[in-house]
Nucleic acid binder design. Structure first.
Length: 495
RNA sequence: GAGCCAUUAGCUCAGUUGGCAGAGCACCUGACUUUUAAUCAGGGUGUCCCAGGUUCGAAUCCUGGAUGGCUCACCA
């Protein structure tokens, strides 16, 4: 509370706190033996008639936050909210006694109460609990947001998520769905013999992706460390070590812009499987996501931002070259010099950097002209080698790699490839990245000698996959912003 | 990083041409033993985001700043 002035609303609640203590009631009570949640009571008894309920006389103990109160003299109706939902309580002075009724009368919206009583149905037909006793569980010293309109202010919703959760039930549903999605992924992979592992989030070399890292410092070792931008290189070391099917679900950190689709820390699932290639990983990705949709939503059809998305298999599989040909009419399968490619970019209004070569330019064509048109699930494969320093080259055409990305609603949802396991080629790729860095690409991949050494011991042919969990949750919960699927999105500090 | 928009009571929001700071909910007092956005009677609780400026007078106009939202850029 420190510097904040105590206004009348806050003072009134503090005064009530003192009054409760004078009455011998602990305002920050203790353990309460709950027998039912609100949902359990409604599930079990809502079907019964008023008379049937009366006959049954079912005794329950419920607990929750007081979120509505309608006092009517010597009797009151109120609603308690718990994790499962809301339920009405009916408190009569002649039933709970004068002392408890006084305490209940003093309760503010936001206070936590426990109620023991009998399930009944009101004249208006709402299944409710008629209180035999009311136990004060915890005092709320601050007023809740407005009961009808809820908490609308987007900034407050993100900064004070607990208020958002109290006032806006659909918010809780989103995060419950998020939890179920992640559980479903784990179950799917665990059932198929993939081993969940945990690798460092603080790296000495920030690799596995193209992104600017956060830098931190270890005092005792006196070294700078980087928060990981990907999980990739450690998981591949485990493949070298003979852990043939591994995955990790964890936070990665990228020191880049914030938007409705980007948060500085976000959750990735990365998976590696020995003896597999990117075709196997494509099948796995398709199976995994449809499985999760079916298990969590009970449907393979989802609606996102008003668009109907069909997640039922099979998904389109198209090469980047074919898609560019289809959407722009430019054929990158032919042998083009960098100069010719640059000229095509200019002709088609595709913006490129001066140091861009054939592969970069193809990628720019794809990103600027095709990407946002891929609404239904589409695997895009055959990425240029220049932008894929960790992927195996294609056997037929070494300008391309055996890599794919999954696009849904115009956004990348997964990235995967047949892993590059040739340490000599990998060293050359890193060196090419160093040349890009020298030319000003500060997101080029750094040299990682320790990783190269691991590859030199021999890594089996391997397929790898990365899925952006937050984006998948956005898709499956029809959330417009990544902040709506993160409990506490990154916000600037406020004075 | 750029553009557009927003910021007024605890919350949701009005505020006209620059002329006393408003409503609903919440809260306080009273009435009320089946209400449910309970109702009825009474009560206004404020750094109008911040700092300057213009003006007799600024929530309102101007300049700068803060925070947030959306779009774009970077990226996943």
């Amino acid at each position: 509370m420190a510097q904040e002035e105590i206004n009348e609303l806050l003072q009134v609640r503090r005064d009530k706190l003192d009054t409760l203590r004078e009455k011998g009631v602990d305002p920050f009570g203790r353990k309460f033996d709950r027998t039912h949640t609100a949902e359990e009571i409604l599930d079990r008894y809502d079907e019964l008639s008023k008379e049937e309920l009366e006959e049954k006389g079912e005794r329950v103990a419920i607990a929750g936050r007081l979120i509505a109160k309608r006092k009517q003299g010597k009797a009151s109706f109120a609603h308690l909210q718990d994790m499962s939902g809301r339920i009405q309580i009916y408190v009569r002075k002649d039933r709970v006694g004068e002392e408890q009724y006084d305490v209940f009368s003093m309760a503010d919206l936001g206070d936590w109460l426990g109620v023991e009583g009998v399930v009944f149905k009101t004249n208006r037909g709402e299944t409710s609990v008629k209180a035999d006793s009311v136990t004060f569980l915890s005092k709320s010293l601050r007023p809740l947001p407005e009961k009808f309109h809820g908490l609308k202010d987007v900034e407050l919703r993100y900064r004070k998520r607990y208020l958002d959760l109290i006032m806006n039930p659909e918010v809780k549903d989103t995060f419950i769905t998020r939890s179920r999605i992640i559980s479903s992924i784990r179950r799917y992979l665990n059932d198929r013999g993939y081993l969940e592992v945990e690798t460092p989030t603080m790296h000495t070399i920030p690799g596995g992706a193209a992104a600017r890292p956060f830098i931190t410092h270890h005092n005792a070792l006196d070294i700078d460390l980087y928060m990981r931008i990907a999980i990739e290189l450690h998981l591949k070391r485990l493949i070298v070590g003979g852990m043939e099917k591994v995955y990790e679900i964890g936070r990665v950190y990228r020191n880049e812009g914030i938007s409705t689709r980007h948060n500085p820390e976000f959750t990735m699932m990365e998976l590696y499987e020995a003896y597999a290639d990117f075709h196997d990983i494509m099948d796995l990705t398709e199976n995994l996501i449809t499985h999760v949709a079916k298990e969590v939503l009970g449907s393979e059809q989802v609606e996102y931002d008003g668009q109907k998305i069909d997640l039922a298999k099979p998904w389109a599989r198209k090469s980047m070259v074919d898609l560019v040909k289809e959407h722009v009419g430019v054929d990158f399968s032919q042998q083009l010099s960098d100069e010719e490619a640059r000229k095509l970019a200019e002709e088609h209004g595709v913006e490129i950097q001066p140091n861009h070569t054939f592969g970069h330019i193809l990628n720019e064509f794809f990103e600027q002209k095709v990407e946002d048109k891929l609404i239904q699930p589409t695997f895009v494969y055959g990425h240029p080698v220049e932008i894929s320093p960790l992927a195996r080259k294609n056997d037929e055409d070494p300008r391309f790699t055996d890599r794919f990305e999954l696009f849904i609603v115009g956004r990348e949802h997964a990235n995967a490839f047949t892993e590059l396991n040739d340490p000599i080629d990998q060293r050359e790729r890193f060196e090419a990245q160093l040349r890009e860095k020298a030319q000003g690409n500060d997101e080029a991949h750094p040299m990682d000698e320790d990783f190269l050494e691991a590859l030199e011991y021999g890594m089996p042919p391997t397929g790898g996959l990365g899925i952006g969990i937050d984006r998948l949750v956005m898709l499956l919960t029809d959330s417009a912003s990544i902040r709506d699927v993160l409990l506490f999105p990154t916000m600037r500090e406020r004075d």
